[in-house]
């Protein structure tokens, strides 16, 4: 019995390194760019798939690498002015069967006030909180692209 528990824990750890899933929600390719300590802010990207039958919502995120973490999106006006703003209602809807991409120039988890330099080749922990699926522990891979 104990071996099974260890095995399950191990699989959990391995899965967390590249993504994770809970309650039909699966998160893959979690990454962020290397950031010098001068950067203050960073962004984390990922793909979130809802494999379940019911809609879910990403309602929050937290990471020890960030003083504050918010869900932001980039918007572009006609012709090139870009800005960033918190997502409307503070939550991102993940419809059943849908995959929502968090990617450069779109949705991102904004890491405000990075607490340490984000070095390429390292990972930082990230917790995503879903309304239905609850908390999901992930590791953010720090890489250039």
């Amino acid at each position: 019995m104990r071996r099974i528990v260890v095995l399950v824990l191990l699989i959990g750890v391995v899965a967390a390194a590249c993504g994770g899933s809970a309650g039909g929600i699966e998160v893959t390719d979690v990454w962020g760019r290397p950031s010098p300590s001068a950067a203050t802010n960073a962004a984390f990207y990922m793909n979130i798939t809802n494999g379940g039958d019911a809609p879910d919502q990403l309602v929050g995120a937290s990471s020890p690498a960030c003083s504050v973490t918010e869900l932001h999106e980039m918007y572009m006006k006609d012709g090139g002015v870009m800005g960033m703003r918190p997502v409307q209602g503070g939550a991102v809807e993940i419809a059943p069967g849908a995959t929502v991409e968090f990617k450069p120039g779109g949705l991102h988890v904004m890491c405000i006030g990075i607490t340490e330099e984000l070095k390429p080749g390292t990972t930082v922990p990230l917790t995503l909180t879903f309304e239905q699926a609850g908390d999901l522990q992930l590791e953010v891979e720090i890489r250039a692209n």
Binding site: A39, H72, M84
Partner: peptide
């Protein structure tokens, strides 16, 4: 600007690439 979390690092990373 350096506080810019998404657009600026993306463009600078593209230029570095």
């Amino acid at each position: 600007y350096t506080f810019c979390p998404d657009v600026c690092p993306t463009t600078l990373a593209d230029l570095a690439g």
